[in-house]
Design a protein around this nucleic acid. Structure first.
Length: 280
RNA sequence: CUAAGAGCUCU
């Protein structure tokens, strides 16, 4: 079994799923029963192929065969399900995990919180966040990213700022994702000055803004008519070596057109093409 | 077996 597992894994990793399937058939013919590692490897391969239906059926086979289910397997199946928007089914697998006495890790909790938030159950997401902490699982910077984004999208900006503070207090390595979410929220809520302050705060705290941070702030500036500030940031991106993406250009082109600066908009387009950036 | 979870443009 071990040799077969290693072969199957090798094939999957090099993208030769077909050969892997062949080895699996060979196992069955030689009556070598697949074990939990075989299943785990196979579920991982299906996950990489974005074939979640197969992940689930393999998982169900494991349950039927009463195989011990590794937490990796739960993690992959739950992440796969919620990625497809199947929040309810994700929770069914979670319940199954709890029943089997397997402890969920921070990634599983975070994926489920995000799934609740994205399906419009912001309140439930916050409750589940509390439950996670009650059950002794420490949230990390990704969890905070999900929570803050959830609050921003619900327009609860002040609460998002509170959670940013909590994160700092708990010594979470608050990263650019959290900042970009709030900058975006503030910008879209018309609180551009605060968005700019937050950008400065992150510099003060030694957190390097990435292209998402710049793009959200540039977007905020263009939408309130501050095109010059937007262009200043665009230049700063260049100066500090932050990648200008198709989002950066799209936001600026749109802003320039809105200000009737058609020539500059067209120049921006050419600049984008020159840099080898493909418009979407 | 070492994976697995978050953010930006138009709609």
């Amino acid at each position: 079994v071990v040799t077969y597992n290693i072969m199957i894994k090798g094939y999957c990793k090099s993208g030769r799923t077909r050969d892997a399937k062949g080895k699996l058939r060979e196992m069955k013919m030689k009556r070598v029963g697949p074990d939990k590692i075989t299943y785990l490897t196979w579920i991982q391969a299906c996950y990489w192929d974005e074939d979640i239906a197969s992940c689930v059926s393999l998982f169900n086979e494991m349950v039927e065969k009463r195989l011990e289910i590794p937490s990796h397997a739960y993690s992959l199946v739950i992440s796969g399900l919620v990625k497809e928007g199947k929040c309810y089914e994700g929770f069914a697998v979670f319940d199954c995990m709890v029943k089997n006495g397997c402890k969920a890790n921070v990634a599983i909790y975070t994926a489920l919180i995000d799934a609740l938030a994205k399906s419009g159950n912001g309140e439930e997401a916050m409750k589940f966040f509390e439950r996670m902490k009650d059950e002794g699982c420490e949230p990390d910077e990704v969890t905070y990213g999900v929570i803050v984004n959830c609050l921003c999208k619900a327009g609860k900006l002040d609460m998002a700022l509170e959670y940013l503070k909590f994160g700092h207090e708990k010594n979470i390595r608050v990263n650019a994702v959290v900042y970009s979410s709030i900058i975006d929220g503030l910008g879209k809520g018309g609180r551009v000055d605060e968005a700019e302050k937050l950008y400065e705060e992150m510099l003060d705290k030694g957190c390097t803004p990435d292209s998402y941070c710049y793009n959200t702030l540039i977007d905020a500036f263009t939408k309130c008519g501050k095109i010059d500030e937007a262009l200043t940031l665009f230049k700063r991106m260049e100066d500090v070596g932050c990648d200008q993406t198709v989002y950066t250009y799209t936001i600026l082109i749109s802003g320039l057109f809105k200000e009737h600066k058609t020539d500059e908009a067209l120049k921006m387009w050419d600049m984008m093409i020159d840099k080898g950036i493909t418009p979407t």
